[in-house]
Amino acid sequence: MTVEMHVVDAFTEQLFGGNPAAVIMTEEWLDDSLMQSIATENNLSETAFLKPVEHNHYQIRWFSPLTEIDFCGHATMASAFVVFLNNPSLSEVKFSAPAVGELIVTKQADGVIDMSFPNRKPEPVGDVPQALLDGLSKEPRQVLRNEQAYFAIYDGEESVRAIEYDSEKLKLLAPFDVVVSSPGKDYDFVSRYFWPANGGDEDPVTGSIHAGLAPYWGEKMSKQELVAFQASQRGGVVHCRLADNRVHVAGKAVLYLKGEIVI
């Protein structure tokens, strides 16, 4: 059996930038263990599997090299990119996933892919886990949490860029990951994302966490539209817009690879 696979760099206009994700479309789900094995073999931060429901509607599942993930933004962008690539006349696609419901993704005239996510604004944490404080090289000014991660807030971009982290200690926060963030110099805010419990050490660009970051910083800055930068080694620009209790997360993507897996 052969399965077609695309690899797409999301949240970038340049090849080898942003965050790469693999996209595989099948008429029926492959066995869970096989999907996990493929994701592990790919060793990308995410492999997305799509199953058609009807015209321009797909069920979607996301797998890191370690486990299945409830919600992944950059692999959703990569999936939409592939759907639009295969169907040039389409300008909208809908994905469904149990943890986040329906995700509407639109293709704009300039090639920007706009994803409508649920608002996942974090709430302050009363008792900050010691593993979080021990796992980051600098104590944050504030700590919050949503369904996905702990949010460690700092005062300046220099602090976020300089953070060193201990993966073994941050693993103790499972099932939650950790995002560190601050106001930016050239962008409204910057962030870095660590997820040793669920996928890897540092994620290049994490679309899903901006469903929490954008509402947080939008409220602090009294803004409905924000431009963010994820300050990883590859880096990526994320355009965010708040509307009707949804968070629109947008950016561009480029195709890296199209091939077949032989199973």
Rank of each mutant, 00 (worst) to 15 (best):
A214M: 06
P204T: 05
V238L: 00
Q230T: 00
P122I: 01
Q108V: 05
S191H: 04
Y58Q: 10
L90I: 10
H248W: 04
E147L: 14
W62I: 05
A10I: 03
S45Y: 12
Q59K: 14
N198H: 11
A48E: 09
F229S: 00
A99P: 02
T26V: 09
M1F: 07
D244Y: 09
A162E: 15
L257W: 12
P52E: 08
L85F: 14
R120I: 10
W29G: 06
V53S: 10
E157F: 07
F81I: 07
D177R: 13
A250N: 01
A109S: 12
Q148F: 14
E225C: 04
V100L: 08
A162S: 15
L255K: 02
I38W: 06
L144N: 03
V238G: 00
Q108R: 11
A75Y: 11
V249L: 02
L44T: 03
D31N: 13
R234V: 01
L50G: 02
V8F: 08
F95T: 02
E164D: 14
P88F: 07
L170F: 09
Q148W: 10
V237M: 05
V254K: 01
K258M: 11
D177L: 12
I69G: 04
M77W: 11
F229D: 00
V178F: 11
D9W: 06
F11E: 00
D114H: 08
L144G: 02
E41H: 08
A48P: 03
R141I: 13
K252H: 15
P204W: 10
A39Q: 03
P215V: 03
